[in-house]
Amino acid sequence: MDIKQVQELIRFVSKSGVNEVSIEEKDFKITIKTNQAPTVVNATIPAPAPAPVAVAPQAAPVAPAQAAPAPAAATPAVAADSSNYITIKSPMIGTFYRSSSPDKPSFVNVGDEVKAGQVVCIIEAMKLFNEIESEVSGRIVKVLVENSSPVEYDQPLFLVEPA
């Protein structure tokens, strides 16, 4: 396994929310662990990774009870504003940042027009800064997360009025 493959594996672990990945070959062994709580991680990705599947059945009954209230609490706010808004959600667990550094302006603010593919925020996961792009074109109606706050997988970040 070369350094590029190791970097790709680290990117996969940070984006997918997997708690631990171990790979063993003839003369090579690597284990990548995150500091994330396993109950949240197992709820987000039980099937794709063979190793965590054994852990998932133990944590699965607990995880939906903890993970379900956050999206459920956000859903009434979305419904109250308008049903025609599109939600940009977090693709991973990490820390949400509205700008690339504290002294730089925010990527987007309420009222800004965004295009599909435009960077709207950064999520830091395992010391990697991942640019999150808008999947739709439209106008930012509401920012749902405070700057420097932890976010969960699939947590709503922005409301966008489609163009």
Rank of each mutant, 00 (worst) to 15 (best):
P38V: 00
V114A: 03
S148M: 06
D81G: 05
A79K: 11
V143K: 05
E133N: 07
Y153N: 09
P57I: 08
K26V: 08
E161G: 03
A163K: 14
S148I: 00
F158M: 07
S82Y: 03
A60T: 03
D154Q: 12
Y153I: 04
F129W: 13
E113P: 00
S22W: 08
P76D: 12
E113A: 06
P162K: 01
V40M: 15
D27Y: 10
T75M: 13
P162S: 02
V120E: 03
K104I: 01
E113M: 05
V13T: 02
P156K: 01
V143C: 00
I30L: 14
S134E: 07
V13G: 00
F129I: 01
K142S: 07
N109M: 11
A70K: 07
I10V: 06
Q66S: 00
E8K: 14
F129R: 08
E24R: 15
I32C: 09
N147V: 03
P69Y: 05
A73D: 11
P69R: 06
V6K: 08
K89V: 05
V114H: 03
Y153D: 10
V62I: 14
P38T: 00
E161S: 05
P105R: 13
D81A: 10
A60C: 05
V6Q: 14
S16R: 05
A43G: 14
E25C: 07
Q155F: 04
T39E: 13
E161N: 09
A59M: 11
G94N: 01
L159T: 03
V160Q: 07
L9P: 07
V18G: 04
K89E: 13
L157C: 02
T95S: 09
S22V: 04
